[in-house]
Design a protein around this nucleic acid. Structure first.
Lengths: 188, 188
DNA sequence: AATTTTATTGTACAGTTGTTCATTATCTTC
DNA sequence: GAAGATAATGAACAACTGTACAATAAAATT
């Protein structure tokens, strides 16, 4: 059972139109009506695929999060999940974030919904789970697993939020260094 | 120069009406129109005070964040800003969060805008800044101050996010313990 | 208490939203 | 390639949105 070509065409048109509109205006000011006009899609059809404009963006961002996942994965693979052995050159996430700067500016905008944030958080969390289960010389000190992970995973995003606050100006090499120092200082 | 009584009355009516509506429906489904109907405020007047329904909620939440600030402040005052000497009984934030559970469920909802999150984050950040400037036996290991703070401040919210995920069921005593273990493990 | 300043109201308007339904177009499968 | 399935369209609807402006009401100031 293949996916209907019409569906693919419709959704692609909408996403493409969104990207076009984002060049001249902010996400929250884009209406469903103008998106459909540009995409040449009937407005009634829109609701068969997406809930609102944020939902279209989400579909887009999911692809980017997959790229984030790959970037985040790299040091885990390079160290065979002994993340303590990580070196600055293995880190790829800040490269990724800077590459998709235009998107992350939207993700971290005060008006954007939290959903995008959780997409990133869940991605990091997933890797930490694996890492902590595999990494044998980790010491847990009687801390609940879920809280431990959420604590450290969200800390990582703290760095990205700060990068956002600094308007993405901090050099990647500095960020890589900082990350290493921050997380190695974290485990005993 | 005092504040006009009419303004106070209008804004209070709107906030009160919002609280009433929140008992039966979610924030995102509440329209400006029905809010004004209930508050008996002309819809045109609404726009003189708030941008949208989320903005009214924000005004409300600002009061709650002030309470959060006080709760967060407590261990800092009790330890005279030597936060390493903190004990579980000094911690008040999880008490606070559970008390205002109904609000935090909205704050951390995927559909809610990031603004509320940043209100909390900025509050924590402010205290960490003070704490790190005052606390003399802290070792910084050549980490950029802003990144250090954002990292640790956001980590704290990670715990609250996990509490949210657990549907606010984790006992306060456990949370207090976890927090101590997590942050003492963090500084060298 | 009278005057001035400022906020609220009522009305109107064009545009958006979310939904429904019959009709048409297009894809999949046999 | 024909038949059946499914998606897209167009039109219509009531409700909501954001804004404007003149008229009115209610504050603050003197």
């Amino acid at each position: 059972m293949k996916k209907d070509l019409r569906i693919i065409k419709t959704e692609e048109s909408l996403r493409k139109a969104l990207l076009t509109l984002l060049k001249t205006k902010t996400l929250e000011t884009i209406t469903i009506s103008e998106l459909c006009r540009l995409a040449q899609i009937n407005r009634g059809t829109f609701y068969l695929h997406y809930r609102d404009v944020y939902d279209v963006f989400r579909h887009y961002f999911e692809v980017i999060v997959e790229d984030f996942r790959k970037a985040y994965e790299k040091p885990y693979l390079n160290t065979n999940f002994n993340i303590n052995n990580m070196t600055p050159d293995m880190i790829d996430i800040f490269n990724h974030v800077k590459k998709y700067k235009a998107f992350y500016q939207i993700i971290f905008d005060g008006k954007s919904p939290m959903t995008y944030y959780y997409l990133v958080l869940d991605t990091i969390r997933k890797f930490m789970e694996e890492s902590l289960s595999i990494d044998n010389n980790a010491v847990y000190l009687d801390v609940d697993f879920d809280y431990l992970i959420s604590y450290h995973a969200n800390a990582i995003i703290g760095i990205i939020i700060e990068l956002h606050k600094q308007n993405y100006t901090t050099p990647i090499e500095i960020l890589n260094e900082q990350l290493i120092k921050l997380i190695t200082n974290t485990r005993s």
